[in-house]
Simulated scan of single mutants.
Amino acid sequence: MRAERLVSSGVFMPDLGLLRRHYPMAKAWVDLVERLAGTSRLWDTGSQLGDWLEAAAPPDDPAAGRTDRYLVATAYFAHSARHLALAAAELGYEQDAVRYETLAEEVADAFRRRYVLPSGRMASDSATAYALALVFGLLRPEQRQPAGDRLAELDSLRPAGTLDPGGMTSFNHYALGAVADWLHRAVGGITATAPGYRRIAFRPRPGGGITWARTRHETPYGTASLSWQLTATGMTARVAVPDGCTATADLPGCAPVLLGPGEHALDTANLAAEAA
C-alpha cells in the first residue's frame, strides 16, 4: 500500500525539519484515537463537539444537531490517519507510512459501513455529513455523485434566494476579520503563496488616500515585513524575507521581482528604468 506524496513534480518542498519536529505529536494523537476506537475503527464514544452550533441543535446541547457527533469524530480520525501517513512518507518512515495508510483505509471502511447508505445518502442527512465525506475522500467513486447532488439540495441559500429558516445562516461569518485580512494583504501587501509562508508575495496596492503602510508577520521561519511609501516618482519599499523563504515583490507599475532571504530596498522608479 502506498501513501501519496506531498510533493508533486518539485512544485513545493515541505520543510522536513518542521515536519520531523511535529511528527511525534501527530503520531501520539492518532495512536490515542486508535486506542479509543478499538477494533471497530469507529470513534463513537466520549464527549464530542460534533457540528458545533448547527442550526437545528437544541440550545442546551449545541453538538446534538442533525449530524451524528460520532460521524464527525470518525471522519476526522480517518483524515488524521491519512495525513500522518503522508507525513511519514515524506520523512522516509516507510513502515509508519504503510501502517497509517492502512489504518486510514480501515477507518474509512468502517465509516462507510456505519454512516453511508447503499444509495450514497448519509445516515445523517446534513450538509456537514456530505461535505466531510466528500472532502475527506471517505466515499467510494460511485457514491460521490449522489452525495454531491444531495449536498447541493441542502445548501443554505435556496434556489429562490431565500435562506434556511434555522436562524444560524451566515454568508459573512468572517465579519470584521475580512477587513483585517484586506488590510494585511491589500494595503499592507503581504500574502503567503505557499504553506507556512515558505513563499511570499509582497504586493501592496495603495488607494483611498493611503500613502504609506508598515506590515509584518511572524512566519515559522522568522519575520516577514514590508514598509512602503508613495513618492513623487512612484513608491519606495523595504522588504524583509526570512531565511529559508523566497519572495516576489510586485509593486505598482513594475514587473514582479524575485527576492531571496534578507532585507531589500526597492524603488519603483529605479525598477521601471532598469526594465526599460
Rank of each mutant, 00 (worst) to 15 (best):
T211V: 15
A110R: 00
A147D: 14
G65V: 12
S225N: 02
K27F: 00
G92S: 10
Y221G: 00
L19I: 06
F171H: 06
C245K: 01
T215C: 05
F136N: 14
D164N: 09
A186C: 08
G177A: 10
L132D: 04
A56Y: 08
S170D: 09
L271Q: 01
G244Y: 00
A88D: 03
T45L: 14
L163T: 03
N172E: 04
A249W: 02
G262R: 07
E4C: 03
G65A: 11
L154D: 02
D109S: 14
D155N: 05
L183N: 00
N270Q: 07
Q95A: 15
P256E: 03
T231I: 05
S40A: 06
L154M: 07
A201C: 14
R66F: 14
G207R: 04
A201F: 03
A73P: 10
F171S: 04
D61Y: 11
A175E: 11
L259W: 05
F111Y: 09
A237Q: 02
H173F: 12
T193I: 14
L36C: 01
A175G: 14
R112I: 01
Q48E: 15
A56H: 11
R158M: 08
G260I: 06
T223D: 07
N270G: 01
L157C: 00
P141M: 10
D60R: 13
S225I: 12
H173G: 05
G234T: 07
P59S: 13
E4K: 08
L84V: 09
R238T: 11
G120R: 07
G262P: 09
A237S: 12
L86V: 12
R140E: 15
L271V: 04
T162D: 13
L271H: 03
G46K: 06
E263F: 06
G167D: 04
L49T: 07
T215K: 01
E274N: 09
R82Q: 11
L271W: 00
H264Q: 03
R20A: 15
A249C: 12
A85T: 09
T74P: 11
Q229P: 00
L151W: 12
Y70E: 05
L84T: 08
E106Q: 15
P141Y: 12
T128V: 15
T219V: 09
E263D: 14
M235E: 00
G188T: 02
V116I: 10
A127G: 12
V187Y: 01
A175D: 15
Y130N: 06
P62F: 08
T223V: 12
D243M: 09
D51Q: 13
D96M: 07
L176E: 03
G38I: 05
V239L: 04
Y100P: 04
T246D: 08
L103R: 03
H79D: 15
T219E: 12
P141W: 11
P165K: 01
A28I: 05
F111K: 03
L151Y: 15
L103Y: 02
G137Y: 01
S8F: 15
H173R: 06
D68S: 13
L176S: 08
A64W: 15
L266R: 08
L32V: 04
G161D: 02
Y115W: 15
G209K: 03
P118H: 03
G38Q: 09
S170A: 07
P59T: 11
